[in-house]
Amino acid sequence: MRLVIIGGGILGTAHAMAAVRRGHEVAHLERELEPRGATVRDFGLVRMSGRSAAEPDLALRSRLLWEEIGGRVPGVGFRPAGSLTLVRTPEELAVAEAAATGPAAEARGFELLDPERVRVVNPALRGKFLAALHCPTDAVVEPWQVLPALRAYLTATGRYTFHSGVEARDVTDTGSGARTRDDQGRVFDADLALICPGAAHTGLTRELAGALPVRRVRLQMMQTAPLGEPLTTAVADGDTFRYDPGFAGPEVVTLNREQSQTATAAEHRMQLLCVQRLHGGLTIGDTHAHTEPFAFDVHEAPYEHLTCVTEELLGRELPPVVRRWAGVYSQSIDPGVPVVRARVDRHVWVITGAGDRGTALGPLLGEETADLLEL
């Protein structure tokens, strides 16, 4: 078969991977000349630890796919780094204890560590905390490398062509397939067209699928200069318990009732996630804004909060911040639905709404769509 895939983020690229590995041909269209969307404005975390009760199996299967991809495409920078969620209050500790003994603990590899054992796993953590929830099944890829590396790998198969700087203007079902016209007047005929628009919910997406059960979420993040020492795991703080559905339970209700968050963290719905890049710098974030229109600028207070918390956990001053950015991603409104697949016509589908699970679940979501469409 021949497929046209519109949208060059992780979701579109994962669908291209699934199609090509099954022997099909893909023409891939992307409006930007280089990656600029949610995939590169991300941590690159392949997380098991924060997934909802319905998703551990999905996350594990996707993590295994990422490990396989990392073996074939070293440029994605796959690393089985694991993660440590550091807790600083008794209420956060209660959530960590419940997670470490809960029904999903074995599948995720959860273990509660005291500070001494934390520093054995990650010696860079010399600051103040009560304990940490260790998740050895979490992994990392390099968000700025993953898309170019996957495209190069796909191109080498001879069954994939990537067209950058191209915007799809029209997609129609011909009865026997799908016809796509781009803004240069070219026509791409295919058996199937898959539109993976990311956070672009208007324009072609709205024309084809109407209003979808998705929302847009805005975040702020930053990148430091090299730390000068290894940060052997990804790091999170106890505020992740407030927002990650995998930790839902009475202990989180108590956590939300007590006012341990700073005013800045509460206002911007913040959690700390910190990942070391291959060049040694730290990617640190993030905030969550759901009400549009989003601000055009970035606020300094969240960055000050992230710096303060990271320095407290590391027990040292952070290297200089060299980049700051905002990003927007598309998220399914139903937390139990990891991605929205809307069938427009027999041969045309719109797929979006993976949210902050795009990187973690991307390869599996592509495979699931391929199974659904019997590719």
Rank of each mutant, 00 (worst) to 15 (best):
V4D: 00
V20G: 05
R22W: 03
G23S: 00
G23E: 05
E32V: 06
L33K: 10
R36G: 11
T39A: 07
T39G: 13
L58W: 05
W66C: 11
P74A: 12
P74W: 12
S83E: 01
V87W: 02
A124L: 15
A139P: 00
Q145K: 15
L154P: 03
Y160C: 04
V171C: 01
S176K: 15
S176C: 09
T180R: 03
Q184P: 14
G185A: 09
D191T: 10
L192G: 00
L194V: 12
I195T: 14
P197D: 13
G198M: 07
A200H: 14
H201R: 15
A209Y: 05
L212S: 15
P213Y: 08
R215G: 11
Q223R: 15
E229S: 04
P230A: 04
L231E: 04
T232C: 00
D237L: 01
R242W: 03
D244T: 06
P245N: 11
T254M: 07
A263C: 12
R269K: 14
M270V: 11
Q271N: 15
R277P: 00
G280D: 04
G280R: 09
F294Q: 07
E300D: 08
A301N: 12
Y303K: 15
H305T: 00
H305P: 03
T307Q: 09
E311R: 02
E312Y: 01
L313C: 05
R316A: 02
P319Y: 13
R323A: 10
R323S: 15
I333D: 11
P335F: 12
R341D: 12
R346Y: 05
V348P: 06
I351H: 11
T352C: 00
G355F: 03
A370S: 14
L375Y: 09
